[in-house]
């Protein structure tokens, strides 16, 4: 198949501009984290700072208690949230994918309706804080994000009903396999592509979540990495004020706060950027299946 392409020089020129536009802010952030504090104060953030320094990272290394705790909380909610979210989604999606499931229509509609209408922030907040008393618990960082709404369930359901041959399920049943056995021995192994895709989307949304922490968490010791970053964005002294840095032996004035803040942001996105190349395929797939009918 020979295709006639546009002038390649022109196309690449445009993409070099676009790629630079996308990458520039990240490069600036990384360079800012390696810039000496005096240099930032005098010349501002720059791609080619006059004075480089590792002070920010040294500070984070020495005062790592708060950062490590926030990191631990983020990793914990991401792992638990992704696993539990995926499990209950698949468990709900499977019966709905079975043509012989009684009340399938009503149940599917109940799942689907959550995409159309939602009570909004105020009732949701009051349900979790006044009814279930989840304020300032780690549960409030996990539960609201498990399913959010029925969208992923519908995606998994349509994968189940199109990709798993009904005769396999029927013959397993006739051979005496229980429904649960069929589910985890046959259905789940055959659905790894969709489970990997949805799992990746859940992982990213848990890692990036700052909203639940913003409304449900007020205790600094329960902050996830995103919430710590969120607080430091508007309050640069936050780490020290809350004595989150363990031993606050360093005098406030000598702390390179401008670069420390940028270094923390770098540490916050590093894991995502590092795994992105390996999972890009699934990520792109997740975005495109989400766009077509669920």
């Amino acid at each position: 198949m020979n295709k006639n392409y546009m002038n390649q020089g022109f196309v690449h020129a445009i993409f070099i501009v676009l790629v630079s536009l996308c990458l520039f802010p990240f490069l600036l952030l990384v360079m800012a984290s390696f810039t000496a504090e005096q240099s930032i104060v005098r010349d501002g953030y720059s791609l080619f700072p006059k004075m480089l320094s590792l002070d920010a990272y040294t500070y984070l290394w020495n005062e790592s208690t708060a950062l490590l705790r926030a990191y631990g909380i983020t990793i914990m909610i991401t792992v638990i949230g992704t696993f539990v979210g995926l499990l209950i989604s698949a468990l709900l999606a499977y019966p709905l994918s079975r043509r012989d499931m009684p009340m399938r229509g009503v149940l599917s509609f109940l799942v689907f309706f959550t995409l159309l209408f939602n009570g909004g922030l105020v009732p949701t907040y009051l349900v979790y804080t006044e009814v279930f008393h989840l304020k300032n618990t780690l549960m409030s960082l996990i539960i609201p994000g498990l399913l959010t709404n029925g969208f992923f369930i519908l995606l998994i359901r349509s994968f189940f009903s199109t990709s798993i041959p009904v005769p396999i399920i029927e013959s397993a049943y006739i051979d005496g396999a229980t429904e649960f056995k069929i589910f985890y021995r046959i259905v789940l192994p055959l659905s790894l592509p969709i489970l990997a895709t949805i799992g990746l989307m859940l992982t990213i949304s848990y890692w990036n979540d700052w909203f639940n922490g913003l409304i449900y968490i007020t205790k600094p010791e329960l902050f996830s990495i995103q919430n710590l970053l969120n607080r430091m964005l508007t309050n640069i002294q936050f780490l020290q004020q809350n004595n989150l840095g363990g031993n606050s032996s360093q005098a406030a004035a000598s702390v390179p706060m401008n670069s420390v803040r940028m270094a923390m942001a770098v540490v916050g996105i590093l894991p995502i950027i590092m795994v992105y190349p390996f999972f890009q395929k699934y990520f792109v797939k997740g975005l495109t299946i989400g766009a077509v009918k669920g």
């Binding site: 109940l110 799942v111 209408f117 009732p123 399913l147």
Partner: peptide
Amino acid sequence: YLIINNYLPMFGV
């Protein structure tokens, strides 16, 4: 989950 996270807030309006 959907009852707690989605339907209770709907009645909460």
